[in-house]
């Protein structure tokens, strides 16, 4: 076994261990757990049997197994970045609504007294 295979296997093992802990702590859902577990198991299998990747690559018409792994990894990474971007935009909008409603609930006049009222949810 090459050193790189050894390192990657340990990395996969650590990832699965952390995944399992997160699942136990209910930080991630069952679907997320299974999805990521399959991902790391597949990674481990490909690390141990690199020829398998080459075989699958040849089916897809990609020259080398490592190229196929790289392509898949890149597509997955882009997809995840997109998901994170969409999530960030959503948080941005949620934060805006929270800050806006707080500002309106505490709006003040020169009279000095801060007016406490139930501000209705804003439209935006």
């Amino acid at each position: 076994m090459n050193l790189i295979q050894f390192v990657l296997l340990i990395l996969a093992a650590i990832s699965i261990w952390r995944l399992w802990q997160k699942y136990l702590g209910r930080d991630i859902s069952v679907v997320e757990f299974i999805g990521w577990l399959l991902f790391w198991l597949l990674t481990a299998v490909v690390v141990v049997f690199p020829d398998l990747a080459s075989y699958i690559a040849s089916i897809f018409g990609v020259g080398r197994g490592s190229d196929l792994v790289l392509y898949i990894g890149l597509v997955l990474a882009f997809y995840l970045i997109f998901r994170i971007y969409v999530r960030l935009e959503k948080y941005d909008r949620d934060l805006t609504v929270v800050v806006r409603n707080l500002a309106r609930a505490k709006a003040a006049d020169k009279g000095g007294e801060t007016e406490q009222k139930n501000s209705s949810a804003t439209k935006s």
């Binding site: 934060l95 805006t96 800050v99 806006r100 707080l102 500002a103 309106r104 505490k106 709006a107 003040a108 006049d109 804003t122 935006s124």
Partner: peptide, 18 residues
Amino acid sequence: ARVLQHLVNLGYGAALIS
């Protein structure tokens, strides 16, 4: 003026909408 305060900076549009 009547004053509304955003706790964090949201931007020109957000301030006008508020």
